[in-house]
Each structure stands twice: as C-alpha cells, then as structure tokens.
Design a binder for these strands. Structure first.
Lengths: 123, 123
DNA sequence: CTTTGTGCAAAGGCTTTGCATGCTT
DNA sequence: AAGCATGCAAAGCCTTTGCACAAAG
C-alpha cells in the first residue's frame, strides 16, 4: 500500500485544488521541494488506482485531474481550461445503435464537451 | 501549393489504403525510400489542410487517417484498430443542454466509440 | 529492520528542425 | 532558374528509469 509521504500529500492536495487538468511538469512548478520524477510517479499511480483521470492535450501532453468515479464525461472551458464533470450521459442508446448497425459489439464511448465558461465569456 | 513528389504520392496512397489510423513511424516502415521526417512533414500538412484526421493513442502517439469531411465521429475496433466514420450524430442536443445548464457557450463535442468489429469477434 | 518513496541525472521515445541537396514547376 | 520538398542527423520535449539515499511502517 502507498506510504504517506509529505510529497504525496502535497501532490494530492494541489491536484484537488485545481479546476483544470494539470500536467506533471505544471504541478512540479507549483510545488516546492518535490522532484519532477516524484510528481510523474505519483500522478501515474493515482491514475492507475483510479483516483485521478487523465486526458491528452492536443500536443500529446498527459494532464491529470481528480474527478468523479464511474461513468462520466468532461465539459472543458476552451479559455481557462476549467473542467467540470458531467454525469448526465445520454449517449448509450446512440452508441449501441451505431455499433449494431456496423456489426460492432461491446461498445464503449468517450465524449468531451468543449465550450466557453460563463466567467471567460464575460471577460 | 503542395508539389507532387513521389514521396507525397506514396504517403497519401498508403494512407488511403489503411483501415486503421497509422503513425508517421508505422507509415515510414511500410514505405521504401521515404524518409521519416518527410512522412512526419506530409502527415502534419495533410492534417493542417483537413485532408487527414488525427487521433491520440493512449500513449500519446499521434496517428493519422483519411476520413470524411464535416462533422463525424469514429467507431474504432479495439482489436484490429479498424476505424469507421460515423456521420449519424445525435449528440448535439445533449451537448447544448449540458452546456446551458453549466453556463457554457459555444459548445463543441468530440466523441469516440470503441468496440469489437464483427471480424475480430469471430476470430 | 525491511520496504517503499524520493532525487537526480541519464536514457528513451516521439516529433521537429537546420541545412545542404535534389526535384518541380 | 527559383522555390519548395527531401534526407539525414541533431536537437527538443515529455516521460520513464537506474541507483543511492531517505523516510515510512
């Protein structure tokens, strides 16, 4: 089981305070006295344990965020990067229908909504 | 405007024959006498021009595929990687609803369906 | 005391870029 | 002839890994 080190606590703490998804490097910059490799290792582990979700930015960077358990999607602000969890998913019917039509089985789906949040819209 | 070189033709030709999305490196392996950098440059360009679509694999690699113009999604086989274009999109209503509820504007959505194609299911 | 985590630096993997050369137009 | 594409190798980035040391259980 995971040991409770000061670094791990710092990483988890900072991650929880983020509205947007962050990369290991970004988190490393915000934390003092935590090595970059340690940040990478902890984030990877949190993701493996299901404690954190990961997304890929367009440039391929891996960003992490703490989010709800279970099936959900993300609503991302294109301006500030804020991420909101969306539990309300109405895609399953559509997914099944499309899959059946094409002869695919065991369908899963992934979706992401991108928009401009009210705060950024005002600015 | 793009010059018609032998390499570019080879790249585009091979790309069109792919059922699945391919990375620059994979394409480079399949082509003889085409430098890796050239493959990267041409794929990037095709994507910029809208002639090719790009997806990110879990490990962050960028893979390319030729696909339909306009709004569509992808149905991907988790076994063989085959990609089928899906024009039938019923997500807009849902996307708008969710966005409005959260105060987001100018929503776009991205979705991906993953399943097992009939061929792979049989095997 | 044993096990696991951390730091640092080196190594890895994918992608981009600089520069001289060759092919298109 | 002028300009853009190609090749090769070097450089860039993000991420992972090896190893010695430190901390946790």
């Amino acid at each position: 089981m995971a040991k409770r080190t000061a670094q791990r606590r710092a990483i988890v703490g900072e991650l929880r305070e983020c509205d947007a998804a962050v990369t290991a490097q970004e988190l490393h910059e915000r934390l003092d006295g935590v090595g970059l490799a340690t940040v990478y290792r902890n984030l990877q582990r949190l993701a493996d344990e299901g404690e954190a979700d990961t997304i890929r930015r367009e440039n391929g960077e891996q960003a992490f965020l703490v989010c709800e358990r279970g099936h959900h999607h993300h609503l991302v602000c294109r301006s500030c990067g804020r991420v909101e969890d969306v539990r309300d998913c109405e895609l399953d019917g559509w997914a099944r229908k499309v899959a059946r039509k094409r002869g695919f089985s065991q369908v899963e789906h992934r979706a992401e909504l991108v928009g401009t949040c009210s705060q950024c819209r005002a600015a």
